[in-house]
Design a protein around this nucleic acid. Structure first.
Lengths: 221, 221
DNA sequence: AGCGCACTTATTGTATACAATTTGCTCTCG
DNA sequence: CGAGAGCAAATTGTATACAATAAGTGCGCT
């Protein structure tokens, strides 16, 4: 589908992820409609969507603003994901068909490939990673859970720090997924939940470390 | 604040909760704008909001529709609330000031009053109940958590079955809150989480029972 | 100089007209 | 009689103009 509202969403999202505006900045609907190349009406819908995903916020007087993500908030986000995706993995373990599990294995093979190279293909890694998690969430067969997780899985956070990840971190992620697949094959919801939990929690710590280094870099400049 | 978009939200919400449309029905934006008494533009914003809260859904071709809540979905909703509000209670136990705890006690006193009457005051009960849970959620000091819970706490579900609750069920709810307050005073996050968990899980079972009786009633007609 | 009040500008909110899409109907052909 | 193409009506999506509200600006007053 290619409604103006969707393209506005995509373009503004891209603009934000590319760092087109600093945290704390205020942006007008008009500027955004220039960026998106459509009128303000669909832009407003896109903004609401981005607000829901917490990529945009509003001031007390309803001005649009780019939020700044503190360490605490990111911690909390990963904690919520850990709970909810852990729950999703648990349910998925009881519901995934053998075909779907094979499919997950196929996706994860791409993930392994992307990091096996001398120069890891970050974009490909992130894409496969996203698809993997989405398929697990989908298999949980809980529309509300899916919707809630969509709010929390912030690509910006992932993307902004992907370069900070070491190759070993990425390989470990792929191995986590392998273990998750093993848990699915064993039909062991408890195992699945535990693996998903540690997977996400480690991701947070890798992220936090990369974050603090990045801040040091900034300070050095 | 009284923007047209907000009044539209309120009126449409009221319309839906009052049972103005049956699950599965499709409603046009125009009908909704008649109900709300404003033009389609703010109605569309209100619809997006109601969609987010799952009071409305869309068909595959973007028609607006009233969702029907199956037993499974309601189970899942309560399960998610149990996880998330349990987490909120845990955090709240570490953060609530003594004044805030006193405030919770005051709110819960109203709750006790509402059910102490010969003819319990359901509206007053629900209002106090909502404020109690909101204050706990707020005290968790996690904007994301607050936002996610706002999606899940469906007044319609609560409201539709409030009449099915026995006086004893309502009194038990108030007692649960008492115990939660005790956990807060003891600064015991683990206790708080456990109490919140059982509180919500019992609420689900009471609800499920009321639901099945209601279905029997329907079948009898 | 500092403070507050009117006034100008900028920004968001709403209505309306029109375009694009979907739905449902009818009429024809097999 | 049923299936399908094509048209008409209904419905959602978008742009634009205007209204309401918030932010900024400069003036006069003390």
């Amino acid at each position: 589908m290619s409604t103006a509202s969707d393209t506005a969403y995509e373009k503004i999202r891209h603009f934000l992820l590319a760092g087109g505006a600093r945290p704390g900045d205020r942006i007008t609907e008009e500027k955004l409609s220039e960026i998106a190349g459509v009128s303000r009406t669909p832009v407003r819908e896109a903004v609401r969507r981005l607000e829901r995903e917490l990529l945009l916020m509003r001031t007390k007087t309803n001005r649009i603003m780019v939020p700044d993500w503190g360490q605490d908030e990111i911690d909390e986000m990963f904690t919520l994901r850990q709970m909810l995706e852990g729950h999703a993995a648990e349910r998925a373990a009881l519901r995934l068909s053998l075909e779907q599990i094979d499919d997950l294995a196929r996706i994860n093979a791409q993930l392994h490939e992307a990091v096996a190279l001398a120069e890891p293909d970050i974009a490909s890694f992130l894409d496969a990673n996203r698809r993997f998690h989405e398929e697990v969430t989908e298999a949980a067969a809980s529309p509300r859970l899916t919707q809630v997780l969509a709010m929390l899985v912030e690509q910006p956070v992932v993307l902004r720090t992907a370069r900070g990840y070491s190759i070993e971190d990425l390989k470990q992620s792929a191995r986590d997924h392998d273990e998750l697949i093993a848990a699915f094959r064993a039909r062991d919801p408890n195992w699945a939940r535990a693996v998903m939990g540690s997977h996400l929690r480690r991701a947070f710590h890798v992220f936090a470390e990369a974050m603090s280094e990045q801040q040091l870099d900034c300070a050095a400049e």
